[in-house]
Design a binder for these strands. Structure first.
Length: 644
RNA sequence: GCCCACAUAGCUCAGGCGGUAGAGCACUUCCUUGGUAAGGAAGAGGUCAUGAGUUCAAGUCUCAUUGUGGGCUCCA
């Protein structure tokens, strides 16, 4: 038969293995790099016979994304074999390849610890060196059940029973046998670079009602250099850790014994946060939002009415005041409803866009708290838009424009995910269709691409999630835009239409940065602590060479502060090198050195935080430079920055 | 919440087999006035997370509590 391989047509005899078919078609060097293949798109082992109707065979190379996944999955098998050898009686469960590596979950008499990793790794090295081939066997489910029951692998038996197909495949490599869809790499020696990274507990099937298993994480690559790069990337992420930087830069702290999961903002961090908040308020006012604020504590009855008491009680804090039960707000929407209801609204009044930097409390489980990224008290840049149905799409377009401008301002790339109606949901099909189409239409109008996440919407309406990518390629979800059909109903919100009748407004919940705490955490990691000049707490610091320049430096500082800049003077009795080092470590954008020469010339010597030296500048020039630097990011969006 | 690891000075960390606590940085004082990433000296600073237990004796061993870190399906 004629088969296309890498764009060329070859005559492949029937009954020939994929390995032999490819060997004849590829150069020796290329062939050595092949770990599996796809025949007419179906992934197969190299040992498989080329299927009769095959028209194309695509080699899967070790360094392709698919190849790396196979290597990782195979590494998981190798790890399981090593663990079985070292810890007799261990039961294996599942071990997939994941984005950054692989893991395998084990059930053993004791949990594994990081101290076990070294021994497991050494055992794996032996298996890799032995180059055991992976061999595939197909069998019926009953045969597989008997096989795994015979081995005492009860978890595997459970998995086999759950598989809908009639037959399953089993892979052997060395002494290890595992249920596996495949394909696999030809033999264990193809795992050329791997490392075990950590251990963790993990529930069987991710359900906390099930038994806790012992998970071992590792990663593997096609070659040692790629592994080294990956480990370097892990180090880089550590270097950018906002918890570490937050302490080094003295932005914020936690007092675990006083308020776990709640932030203490130190002066520098609070300054940064305040600049961000002020900017957000102004920007929202420019875009037709109104600033509002509701109370922290609301009577329990209102949470019952909103549905939070039924659906969200676990995450709420309650207290009793004068025999009345109160709930601390976990969301701002209820108050915004009440503000809407304070007047009878006309169709002419709509849309109303209510913006609140709302402080909310949510009782997150203790184990999920994580620096600023997961806290129990946080501030949302929250808004609720109440509009007529015919205004919905235009409103969403406005929100997306704001997302685009804000993400552009910080230099984040992002992608858009639209989630549609889930099985368990309320509202008419008509409402859902209209709202979902409005979301899709708005994203299309904005000229942005999106993906659809079928059935992942909230029970009360469809939503748009925006996932941003930071400077080192990690993805974060910040913004969310959700249409809500329930709350306007529950609170009986109305407006009087042109026809004189009462109508139900549509509600949109939206948060762009999400939580300010979380956003500042992400920003810190994104910029590795070197914040853009417009938002950095200290924009410039004057350093005196000796105390003879102290008066000049303090005068210069006052002048720059009066010009609206955030400037400090370091007049301590320390050597210049020492002061430079400190300012540099604090990632202050402009370091202004003042010695006798500068005093004489009436200026300062400018050093940037990247170490570059700009030489002597007048104070007016410095002020202009800093202002221009502040404006720079705003040129990308339709926004401006003011120094008031 | 659950599993593992961890909790010692403001910060980063040492403290063999149980015998009354140590460094660097930061801080205070003094000397030093030094031109772009750490000048020198002295001093002060700790109920070893909290509470029990074992022991003649606990930072060290055991248990509990609180908190922190890594995780808790990316479905063979």
């Amino acid at each position: 038969m004629n088969v296309t391989i890498e764009g060329q047509v070859f005559d492949v005899q029937s009954g020939v293995s994929c390995r032999d078919a490819l060997k004849g078609a590829l150069s020796g060097k290329k062939f050595k790099n092949v770990v599996a293949c796809r025949c007419n798109g179906t992934p197969l082992d190299l040992t498989a016979t080329v299927p009769a109707d095959t028209t194309t065979i695509e080699p899967v190379f070790a360094d392709s994304p698919e190849g790396i996944e196979l290597i990782r999955h195979s590494a998981a098998h190798i790890m399981a074999e090593a663990v079985q050898k070292l810890f007799p009686g261990v039961k294996v469960t599942i071990g997939p390849a994941i984005d950054s590596g692989f893991y395998y979950d084990f059930d053993y008499e004791r949990p594994f610890s990081v101290d076990d990793l070294e021994a497991i790794e050494a055992e794996m090295q032996k298996i890799v060196a032995a180059a055991h081939p992976f061999t595939r066997t197909e069998m019926t489910k009953d045969e597989a059940v008997a096989l795994f029951e015979g081995m005492g692998e009860t978890y595997k038996v459970e998995i086999v029973r759950d598989i809908p197909a009639d037959t399953v495949s089993v892979y052997r490599s060395g002494d290890f046998v595992d249920l596996c869809r495949g394909p696999h790499i030809p033999d264990t020696s193809f795992v050329k670079a791997f490392k075990l990274l950590s251990v963790a507990g993990a529930y069987w099937r991710g359900d906390e009602k099930n038994r806790m298993l012992s998970r071992v994480y590792g990663t593997a690559f096609a070659d040692p250099k790629a592994l080294k790069d990956h480990l370097h990337q892990i180090e880089e992420a550590k270097r950018r850790d906002h918890r570490k930087l937050g302490q080094q830069l003295d932005l914020f702290a936690f007092h675990e014994d006083v308020a776990p999961g709640m932030v203490y903002w130190h002066p520098k961090g609070m300054l940064l946060r305040t600049i961000l908040e002020d900017f957000l308020r102004k920007e929202h006012l420019k875009r037709g939002y109104e600033l509002v604020q509701g109370p922290q504590l609301l009577r329990r009855e209102v949470w019952e009415k909103s549905g939070h008491y039924d659906n969200y009680r676990e995450n709420m804090y309650f207290t009793v005041i004068d025999d009345n039960a109160y709930g601390v707000k976990p969301m701002n929407c209820v108050s915004h409803m009440l503000i809407y209801k304070s007047h009878l609204r006309s169709y002419r009044d709509l849309p109303r866009r209510m913006f609140e930097l709302g402080v909310v409390h949510r009782h997150e489980k203790s184990g999920v708290l994580h620096g600023l990224l997961r806290v129990r008290q946080f501030t949302q840049d929250d808004a609720h838009i109440l509009c007529r149905p015919d205004q919905l799409e235009a409103e969403i377009i406005g929100v997306i424009a704001l997302v685009r401008d804000l993400m552009g301002l910080f230099g984040f790339d992002y992608r858009i995910v639209i989630s549609t109606r889930p099985e368990k949901s309320i509202g008419s099909d008509e409402d859902w269709d209209r709202a979902t189409n409005a979301l899709i239409g708005a994203v299309a109008t904005a000229g942005l691409s999106y993906t659809i996440n079928e059935g992942d919407g909230a029970f009360y309406g469809p939503k748009i999630d925006i996932k941003v990518t930071d400077a080192i390629g990690r993805e974060w979800q910040l913004s969310t835009i959700q249409v809500d059909f329930t709350l306007p109903d529950r609170f009986d919100l109305v407006y009087i239409g042109q026809d004189g009748e009462r109508h139900r407004p549509v509600m949109v919940h939206r948060a762009i940065l999400g939580s300010l705490e979380r956003f500042i955490g992400v920003l810190t990691e994104h910029f590795a602590g070197a914040f853009p000049t417009w938002i950095v707490p200290v924009q410039a610091r004057l350093l005196t060479v000796t105390d003879a320049q102290n008066d000049f430096a303090m005068g210069a500082r006052d002048q720059l502060v009066a010009a609206g800049l955030r400037v400090e003077a370091d007049t301590r009795n320390e050597k210049l090198g020492y002061k430079v080092r400190e300012a540099q470590l604090e990632k202050i954008p402009y370091i202004l050195v003042v010695g006798d020469k500068e005093v004489e010339a009436g200026g300062v010597n400018v050093r940037l935080r990247n170490g570059e030296n700009l030489g002597l500048k007048t104070l007016a020039e410095v002020a202009e430079m800093i202002r221009a630097d502040c404006q720079e990011p705003f040129k990308r969006g339709g926004m401006s920055y003011s120094f008031s």
